[in-house]
Each structure stands twice: as C-alpha cells, then as structure tokens.
C-alpha cells in the first residue's frame, strides 16, 4: 500500500468497521447505553475539532459550545420548520443537508469572530471567545421563533450510530491529512513561534482563521447530531460549562494528539454516566463532576503535562508493533 492512498484506505476500513459494529450495537444495547455511545461519539467530534484550534494551532478558544449551538439550532430549525419529518432515503439526504448547513453556519460564525479576534493573544482570545459563546446563548434565549429559553423540541431522531461515527471518521481523515500538508505545518509553526513563522512567509492569521473555521464547522455538525438525537435543544445545553468540558478533553488528551484527545473525550463522557449514582461522602458524583475535572487537570499538569497520550503517534506505534524500523517520515512515496 503506497503512502498516497493510505488515508483513503484507513477511511474505508473505518466506515466498514462502523457499519459492522452498528449491528451488534443497535441490537444489543438498550436505549440508555446507546445514548452514552452516541454522546461519546459527539464528544469525540467536539474535542477533535477543538483540538485543531487549541491543540495544533495553539489558540486558546473557550467558545466551542457556541459553534455547536449555532449548528444545532440551524440544523434542527431546518428539519422542524422547513423540511418536516421524512423517511427513508429522503430522510438520510435531508439529514446530510441540514447537518452541513449547521456546519456551514457555524463556520461562517467562526470566520466572523475569528478574523478580528485571532489577532489577540492568549488570555484575550480566551475571553473574547468565552464572551462569544455566552452571547450566542443569550441571543438564542431571546429569539422567540426558536423557542426562547425553552428551545426547539420535537426534533425527529435521525442521528444514528453510523451517522455519528461516520462523521467522526471523516473528521479524523480531514485532520490527519491536513496535518500532513502545508496547513498542518502552518498550524504547528504558528503554535510554536509566530514571529519565526511569519519570518519565513507563513501568514499566521490565515492559518489561525482556517483552524478556527474548520473546527467550528465540525462543532456545528456535532450540534446537528446532538439536536437530532436529543429531540430537544435548549440554549442552556450550550453554556460556558460545555465549552470548558471540551477544553478539558483537549488538555487531558494532550493538546494536539488526536488519539489522546479522542480517548479523553470518551473517558470524560462515559465515566460521569457510569459513576452517576456513585456517592462519595454523601454527595452524588454528578454533583461534584466539575470538581473532579478540576482535580484531574491539576494532577495531570503535575504528573503528565504532555497529556494522557502526549506525543503518541499511532502510525509509529503500529510500525513498532510490526517490528519495522523507523523510516524517515516523508521521502518514501
């Protein structure tokens, strides 16, 4: 298998595995467990898309839930108010259309907020994006046609295992390929040293905005998936805490390590559900979830600042298992 087609091969294998797994999952899991699985997939999309911005490009964004909200509202409003509930192939096609529409709206929002704010550094960008997320939430609360604070209800349940993980597979394909191109190098160079990057002709603003827009696009799609699984979306679902949760997944997974971030997203979505009713000192886990997040972040910063998987590289790992020597990464074709 030549390097050229490897990413397509992985994508195909991914699709096949997802379709194959969907049968036992759909048949064997009760609706409660299925909900957890879908939520894990949506979290993975959110975390991997934020990873493009926070991890690879080093821009600290705290507004990812805002992009998710825009996608969720766009897609859900289109389905409930324009297209209505459909079935069969029409349904699948229309679902694709509304998901993409949600992604595109979020991407446009990303462009509009990214261009002025990405000139800001570090903390300032975090504050502006945090403000953006909150503004989106407050605006949604006040748009009566979109249900105000009650949100949109009665959204048909189109989101399936295959849709969720299929989109995740596409996101991983897009990310891994981008990272192997001038874009990925532009992201990393911008993260490592903006002045040095500019000095060799790298338009750091362009790369920051690109990362922001692509990240926002997939967050918007995740929002559409969420709406069409939950049947109900409210502005409150996309608050500041949601953004923080996604940021924690990226940091825990090790800023920039796709596989680490996916693992962290899965753990942080699954564990709270599994431990939901567990009590400690008479307090239910779900009530001190945020405390646990904070604690695990502190512990991580002390003991494993590079994140759970840190510099873990899947391809290299596989090569090691297969006992092949490490080749220069780029000259082979």
């Amino acid at each position: 298998m030549s390097r050229k087609h490897r990413s397509y091969l992985y994508l195909l294998i991914g699709f096949a595995a997802i379709i194959g797994l969907s049968f036992p999952f759909e048949a064997g899991l009760n609706s409660y467990d299925m909900r957890i699985v879908i939520n894990v997939g949506i979290s993975m999309i959110l975390a991997a898309s934020l990873n493009l911005i926070n991890g690879f490009t080093g821009q600290f964004s705290l507004g990812h839930a805002g992009f998710m909200a825009i996608g969720a509202y766009t897609a859900s409003a289109l389905t409930t108010m324009v297209f209505g509930t459909t079935e069969g192939t029409t349904q699948e096609l229309l679902f694709l259309v509304v998901l993409i529409a949600g992604g595109v709206s979020a991407a446009i929002a990303g462009l509009l907020i990214g261009i002025p704010s990405l000139r800001l550094k570090g903390d300032y960008l975090a504050i502006v994006t945090l403000g953006f997320g909150e503004i989106i939430r407050v605006v949604l609360q006040n748009i009566e046609p979109l249900g105000g604070s009650l949100g949109i209800s009665g959204i048909p349940r189109y989101t399936t295992f295959i849709w969720t993980f299929g989109i995740l597979a596409v996101l991983i394909f897009v990310t891994e390929n981008l990272m192997r191109s001038t874009y990925g190098r532009g992201f990393l160079a911008t993260r490592d040293d903006e002045i040095a990057a500019e000095s060799v002709g790298v338009n750091t603003t362009k790369y920051k905005v690109t990362a922001f827009v692509v990240g926002a696009f997939f967050a918007g799609i995740a929002g559409g998936l969420y709406g069409h699984y939950n049947s109900l979306i409210r502005p409150l679902d996309f608050g500041f805490l949601k953004s923080v949760e996604i940021v924690v997944m990226v940091i825990l997974g090790g800023m920039g390590s796709t596989w680490g971030v996916l693992l962290a997203a899965a753990l942080l979505t699954y564990l709270p559900e599994a431990l939901r009713e567990v009590e400690l000192f008479g307090i239910k886990f779900r009530d001190f979830r945020m405390t646990i997040y904070a604690l695990s972040l502190i512990l991580l910063m002390i003991f494993r600042p590079q994140g759970l998987l840190g510099d873990f590289n899947a391809e290299e790992f596989i090569r090691k298992i297969r006992g092949k020597p490490k080749k220069p990464a780029t000259t082979e074709t």
């Binding site: 190098r185 532009g186 990393l188 160079a189 993260r191 490592d192 040293d193 002045i195 040095a196 990057a197 000095s199 060799v200 002709g201 790298v202 220069p328 990464a329 780029t330």
Partner: peptide, 15 residues
C-alpha cells in the same frame, strides 16, 4: 527561534 516541537526536516519544510 526554531519551531521546537518540529523535526529539523519540518522546520525547513515550513520555509
């Protein structure tokens, strides 16, 4: 001011 987390090859490749 190199890109510390990139390889020598990738540092040059950014150029």
């Amino acid at each position: 001011r190199l890109f510390p987390s990139l390889s020598v090859f990738d540092n040059v490749r950014v150029g």
